[in-house]
Design a protein around this nucleic acid. Sequence first.
DNA 1: CTGAAAGCGCTTACAG
DNA 2: CTGAAAGCGCTTACAG
Lengths: 334, 334
Amino acid sequence: MGQRPTILDVARHAGVSKSTVSLVLQQSKSVKESTRVAVRQAMADIGYVYNRSAATLRSSSSGLIGLVINDLRNPFFTEFATSFQMELAQNGFATVLANTDEDPSIQARMISSLVEHGVSGFVISPAYGGANETRAILRAAGTPALQVFRSLAEDNDQIPLIAPDYQLGGRLATEHLFDMGCRNIAFLGGLNGRPVTQDRMSGYLSVLKQRGINPVVLTGEATRHFGKVMVAKLAEDHPDVDGVICFNDLVGLGVLSACVERGIKVGQDLRVVGFDDIEDCQDSFPSLSSVSCNIPDFAKSTAAHILKWIKNGERPPSRVRSDVRLVQRASSGI
Amino acid sequence: MGQRPTILDVARHAGVSKSTVSLVLQQSKSVKESTRVAVRQAMADIGYVYNRSAATLRSSSSGLIGLVINDLRNPFFTEFATSFQMELAQNGFATVLANTDEDPSIQARMISSLVEHGVSGFVISPAYGGANETRAILRAAGTPALQVFRSLAEDNDQIPLIAPDYQLGGRLATEHLFDMGCRNIAFLGGLNGRPVTQDRMSGYLSVLKQRGINPVVLTGEATRHFGKVMVAKLAEDHPDVDGVICFNDLVGLGVLSACVERGIKVGQDLRVVGFDDIEDCQDSFPSLSSVSCNIPDFAKSTAAHILKWIKNGERPPSRVRSDVRLVQRASSGI
DNA sequence: CTGAAAGCGCTTACAG
DNA sequence: CTGAAAGCGCTTACAG
C-alpha cells in the first residue's frame, strides 16, 4: 500500500492542482469536461487508487455501512444480507457484514469495532439478550442505526425498527389452513416470550379465538431439528391435529422430513405452513407453503431508509411494518 | 462522528502528551503501568473512540480483511464465512464480507472498492469466468490475496490457493459405496469442466477404473433442483444405478427429496453420498452421508495463512490441500 | 519513559 | 473554473 500514487501524482501528471483532482473525484459539476477527462486519463495512466481512509478522516464519512446479523447461517438472514449488500453497492456504499451468533457480547464487540472503522450507519438484527452494552456503544457513537426483524431488549423506540407484519402473516397462514379444511391447528416453534414469536403466534391465536377453537402451542428452537422432534410429540399428545403453522421454514422443513419418515401424508393427513419463504421451500418434498416477507423488497426499503438518514438526516419513523403474503404450495394441500 | 474526543483530549485529561496516548493505544511496552492506567481511565471518562481511519492513513494498515465469496447463499460458504470471521475477530482483525453472486464483474467492483477502503488482505472464493479484471486490480493494489476452494481462471500460481483435497474426497466416497455393496455408481452434478468438478470426479473415476467399471457421469448445476431432476433421469436412462456420489450436499438433498417422492428407498435401493457436509445433512430424511471438508479447521488455517502473510510477509505456498474425511450416515445404508 | 514536530492523503473553505 | 493553505486524528522517528 505504501507506494501507491496520490492525488498529487495525478495532479502533476495532468497538469492541474490537487484540489482539482479532488473535485473530479467527488464528481463536482464545477470542473470543466476537458479537465475532467484529462484527470481521469492521468489516473488510469499512473494506476491511481482512491484512498478512502484519507477521505474519511477529512470528511468523516466512510461510505461504509455495518450490517450486524444474529445468525447468518440461517438462510433467511443470508438472503436478506445479500440483497441488502447489492442494493447498497448500487448506491456507492460498501457493506461490512458481521455475524454475532446470537451472542450479545460478541454483538457489542462487533459494533464497537465497526464504530472504530467509522461506519456511516448500522443495520442490526439484534441477538436476543443483554442489550445495554450495545445500546451504550451506539448512543456514544451517535451513528445512525436501524433495527430490522427484531428489536433489542427493553427498547423504548430509541432505535427505529423495520419489520415484516408478522401478526398478519400468522393470521393469513391460519385462515388458509381453515380454508383447506383443517379443524385442529397447532403452532410450532419459536422461543417462548420473544416478541417475534409472540407476533407470529398472536395472528394465529386471534383467528382461533374468533372461531372459538382452543389453540395448541408448542414453542421451542427455530430449527429443523425441533420440527422433527415435534412431529413425534404431536403424534403422541395431539393426534387430532390436522394442520400446523411453523414459526419459520426451518421448523417446517423439519416437520416435513419427520412426516416422510413416519409415513404421514403432508398436504392430506397433515397440512403445513412455514414462515419466511426461504428458497429451500421450493425444493423440499412436498414443497412448503410459507408466509413470504418479500426479502428483496424489504432489503431495498431498509437500504433506502438508512441512506436517507445518513445523507439527509431523515430519521425513519420508530416503527415500520412491511407487507407479507401467503405463498401456497403442496404442503398445505394445494 | 464530528464531535468525538481525540487522543489530544485524552492527553489533556490524563495530563500526558498525545504520543503517550498513542503508545498506550498500541499496547507499547515502553509506557509505565501507572501512566497506562491513567490514560485508559481518561479514555473511559470522556468516552474516547479510536479512529482507525486516521491510524490507517498514517500507518497504512487497516486491520480489515476482505472476504469475497462467489455464493453466500450456499450454506457451505456461509459456514466458512462465519467461522473465518470469528477467527479473525479473535486476532483483532475485522472481516468485510462481500458476495459476488458468481458474477466476475461484480467481483472486480467489490474488490476494487475494498482496495479503496484499504483492506490489509484478501481471501477470495472466486466466481467462475473472466478473471483478468480481478487479477489486474489485485496486482495493482499489491495487497496479500489468497484464493480458497477454487482458483481464478487461467491462474498460474500467482495467487496462492488453499483448498480441500477434493480428489481424495471423491475416492473415499466411491470406495465407501463399493464397500456397502454398490455395483453401479453414478456421479451427479457440478458444472462440467470446472476444476472443482474435475477434482471431485477424478477421485470417483480413479476408483472405477481400478475396478474396471464404466462410469456414469451426469454433470450440471450444483443445486437441490438439479438433484431432483436427475433422479428421474437415472430411473429412466440408468435403472441399474444403485449408488450416487453427488457433487455437493445440495444436489444430494435434492436426490433425497425426489427419492422420497418416488418411493425409492434411500440407503437400500439407492445409496447416496454428498460433499461438503453442511449442517442440513444431519436433519434430512434420511440423514445424508457426506465428505466433510472440516470447515472450522479450514477457516482457522486460512486465517492463520493470511495473517502470517500480512504481519510477517510470509507468503503461503502456492498450493495447499487440506484434509477431508467421510462422514457416514443413513443415506449410504449405515 | 515522555514530548515536540512532521506527515499520511485526502477535503474544505477561501481567493482569484 | 482552478490554486494555495489548513487541517482531519492518528503514528512515527527523534530528542531528551
